[in-house]
Write a protein that binds this DNA or RNA. Structure first.
Length: 279
DNA sequence: AACAGTTTCAACCGCCGGGGA
DNA sequence: CTCCCCGGCGGTTGAAACTGT
């Protein structure tokens, strides 16, 4: 015999949800909160299995979900993250809190895949595994050459970071709060922080660049996306601790992987309570 | 208008991991 | 340690909507 079904199939309704069913589910969750899905069909009288209830809530009824009309910025972020994380849609969705993993997955499969095929050779993209991507598209030049490249290209990274940090233009939609919270910690720990919000302070600070330790992986954006594992910081001076309220921060910056002897622009995934270094 | 082919996306399926007994 | 249950995940399906002829 095969694997038993997740729930009793007899009398379980399948297919699209009706507005009446939605109302019942939403009312129940408003009263009891999401969770304990096993008990939901029994307590509500819905002829649906627990999984179906959970899916309907998380993918459709949950408040704060944005549907359709993906912005260009969201598209770019999904493409970056897909290259970084693979088809880990739930992980990708954590960077776009208003989107569900299912929505992102569908959008990827129906729109972005095709879009990418148009801009790049499809076979080139899909035929490569991650290690091939790493070895093929990270520009491999020696440290001195990389340092020269850093000097010219670091300016771009600084601009992106300063835009996010000082002009409150988040790189991903929900990051403003995180960044400002994170910045509070920075201001607290740094000298002469009275005028932290003023123009003069911003101007002074705009010369700083922020890099992150504890990287999961690093992505090179040029000429195509790929990974450097175990990337380490190339240059760093003063240190500060990230407040534990920051869930994940995503930045484009420039890093140097000392093990691989390579550098590249990076999409940085910063875990909880990690260390930020400034130089 | 009618039909066929294509696209979209909500929902399902089966697998997996975490946690409790 | 093992087993079982539950929730979460990614891949897939199929009905509905859309487009072309």
């Amino acid at each position: 015999m095969g694997r038993p079904p997740c729930c009793d199939k007899v009398g379980v309704k399948k297919g699209p949800w009706t507005p009446e069913e939605d109302i019942i589910l939403v009312s129940y969750i408003q009263e009891h909160g999401p969770g304990n899905w096993k008990s939901v069909p029994h307590n509500t009288g819905l002829m649906r299995c627990s999984k179906s209830c959970r899916l309907r809530w998380t993918n459709y009824l949950r408040p704060g979900i944005k549907r359709g009309n993906f912005t260009e910025q969201e598209e770019k972020l999904i493409i970056h993250l897909q290259a970084l994380l693979g088809n880990r849609w739930a992980a990708i969705a954590s960077y776009l809190p208003e989107r569900t993993d299912n929505d992102i997955k569908n959008y990827w499969n129906t729109h972005l895949k095709k879009k990418l095929r148009k801009t790049q050779s499809c076979s080139e993209l899909e035929g490569m595994n991650k290690s091939e991507l790493s070895s093929n598209s990270i520009p491999c030049f020696p440290k001195d050459q990389w340092e020269r490249r850093l000097q010219t290209d670091i300016h771009t990274a600084k601009l992106a970071l300063n835009e996010a940090l000082y002009q409150e233009k988040p790189i991903y939609a929900s990051s403003t709060e995180n960044i400002s919270r994170w910045l509070q910690g920075w201001m607290k720990n740094s000298p002469s922080n009275e005028n932290a919000g003023s123009n003069s302070e911003s101007t002074r600070r705009s010369t700083d660049t922020v890099l992150f330790k504890g990287l999961d992986s690093v992505v090179d954006f040029e000429p195509s996306m790929s990974e450097i594992s175990d990337a380490s910081l190339f240059q760093a001076e003063s240190k500060l601790e990230v407040e534990d309220t920051v869930p994940l921060v995503l930045f484009e910056t420039w890093l140097f992987d000392e093990n691989a002897g390579q550098g590249g622009a990076a999409l940085v995934d910063m875990p909880l309570g990690d260390t930020v270094e400034l130089f």
